[in-house]
Amino acid sequence: MISLQNIERIFQVGDEEVHALRDVSMTATDGDHIAIMGPSGSGKSSLLNILGLLDRPDTGSYELDGVKVSELDEKEQARIRRHKIGFVFQFFHLVPRLTAFDNIALPLMLAGMKQDERQARVTAALAAFGLGNRAQHRPDQLSGGQRQRVAIARATIMQPSVILADEPTGNLDRNSGIEVVEILEELNRQGITLIMVTHDPELGRRAQRQILMVDGRIEREAEG
């Protein structure tokens, strides 16, 4: 359960103030599939960063599963990111020197799980995302679609309740993009809340709710 109330985010650029988010309020219930759309610079990424606890709003409050997370300290926010939130980025953000296996295992490793326990879970995840024979390949030896699948596998390995995806298909060709979106939708069907920023109206229409942002405001919301 996500609830944003009157969120403002202002960036100071030189003498000028840039209002990235103006009075944004929204809620999402568990299992929602939301697409955030809007022109470039409208504040989509800014909103997603706040939802993902990567950034703090200047005003307003954010409740996640009944906890006022906007008031937590950095350590507790990190714990919540670790356990409840999975990120998928436009530029994949894989660690270039680690293999696909190690990239997926990263969150488990950071959480302190033992190596033999990790083994089984990561192997299962690799298989589930069709990467069974790519375990020992490094990112530069993978195609874009494969890279994004590794990133999604990594985002879901901790079994988060929310997946935040910022233009996950922005760097992929059409087929690979559809493939990735289908994977994300499948995860959503299993109960994970999926919030995805996209420029592609066709992909947006597949979401159950569409939020349109313009100039830092939620311009309107459409269902279906």
Binding site: G52, L54, E74, K75, A78, R79, I80, R81, R82, H83, I85, F87, F91, H93, V95, L106, P107, L110, A111, R154
Partner: peptide, 16 residues
Amino acid sequence: TGEIGLLRAMGVEQSQ
């Protein structure tokens, strides 16, 4: 830097 951002997004604390 990118890797650090990723780690932070995955819930790694500053001290870590």
